[in-house]
Write a protein that binds this DNA or RNA. Structure first.
Lengths: 126, 126
DNA sequence: GGTGCCTACTTCCCAATGGAGAGCAAGGGA
DNA sequence: TCCCTTGCTCTCCATTGGGAAGTAGGCACC
């Protein structure tokens, strides 16, 4: 769809675009849930995160962790052992993001019933 | 991947699951950007939102707005005119969510450079 | 010495999702 | 009569994601 107008409260539209792009990369279901798992449990191994995030496939877990590592949200430590042991830990940046998301969690907790009701009403209307 | 363990700071795992499910539905790139657009501009028409969210396709805009309506985040008002006019507005619930996401926006704004640097370092390392 | 096992991936196949663009309804204007 | 408008909806195709199987490589057991 169209590009420009986009009146924002920021002065610089390039900053807006960068923020949007960053949000786009971070605001992903799996990223959020992995972030939550790491925030709650501290340093975790690959398979422990997988267990803490029900429904994620190994492929998506690998992919999500790689991307988070690339964005600087987690550090990856490989221990040269057999069997292999790889540990993931939130960076300060990742921890800050998790804190920023706290508000969203609390919103979700607070409003579960409202949302369920809205959904039921919407579905009944259709 | 596996289901259980998932030690959380909530007592009830069912609440956790519901929260995760809700987050999963709301933590979507397009939902966030549409939320931002509506929060900044107030009531908006379909195509105005499209212009405010660069890169979104009409299909995804329709789909995102429908889902947001279903979750109770926006209201949809159809004016029986020709050409048609449909206006979208955040509900209180939607507004609260947008506020909850403020922290994430500020995080992104504050850390753009750190993230860019992390990405550059990661890419150089590979 | 062969057979597993363990973990963190990687690969393959197939279904679902998302983007691009065309089509549509329905009334008003030229 | 033809075209314009808006908010979708549909179709076609590329990309993404899930499920399951495969891989490396050193160790333990028989």
């Amino acid at each position: 769809m169209g590009k420009p107008p986009h009146t924002s409260y920021h002065s610089d539209p390039r900053v807006d675009a960068l923020v949007d792009e960053t949000i786009g990369r971070v605001a992903d279901k799996w990223t959020l849930l992995v972030l939550e798992a790491l925030e709650e449990a501290g340093e975790q191994r690959f398979s422990a995160i997988g267990r803490a995030v029900p429904g994620i496939s190994q492929k998506m877990l690998t992919q999500t962790l790689r991307q988070m590592e690339r964005e600087g949200l987690v550090t990856r430590t490989v221990h040269a052992e057999v069997p292999p042991r790889v540990e993931y830990r939130l960076t300060v940046l990742g921890h800050d993001l998790a804190e920023a998301f706290c508000g969203v969690w609390h919103w979700a907790e607070r409003n579960i019933e409202t949302i369920e009701a809205a959904r039921a009403a919407f579905d009944a209307r259709q």
